[in-house]
Amino acid sequence: MSHIPADRRYAKSHEWVRLLPDGRVEIGITDHAQQALGDLVFVEVPEPGRVLGAGEACAVVESVKAASDVYSPIAGTVLENNADLGGAPELINQDCYGKGWMMRLQPVSPDALDALLGPEAYAAQLAAEGG
């Protein structure tokens, strides 16, 4: 069973977005995504300053059997990336919604989150996919 916290929004491509109190957003991949990939061996995150469009491929997660692009669910500028993932990609396997966050953005528009899936809608998508 896949864990889907209620305090954030989701993209169909299995990323989560959390709005921080100061208006920035934090982005990572979901529990379902990390389970499907298996033990991660490498993570590549975007450099601060990079301007991302909604749906743009901006990071890569790699296990021994698969490599996946991570797409930014919303448009914005990268402020910070999670440097700890470089030496410890397993943080995503262990705590994908916490210590396994991937990047923080200054969103072009915070309203963009509204267009993403809520927890129930994402759970319904997973159920439909057979997960």
Binding site: V41, F42, E62, V64, P89
Partner: peptide, 10 residues
């Protein structure tokens, strides 16, 4: 025996 591919890649 079966080899640890995760370790090899990390």
């Amino acid at each position: 025996r079966r080899l640890d591919d995760v370790r090899a890649a990390k």
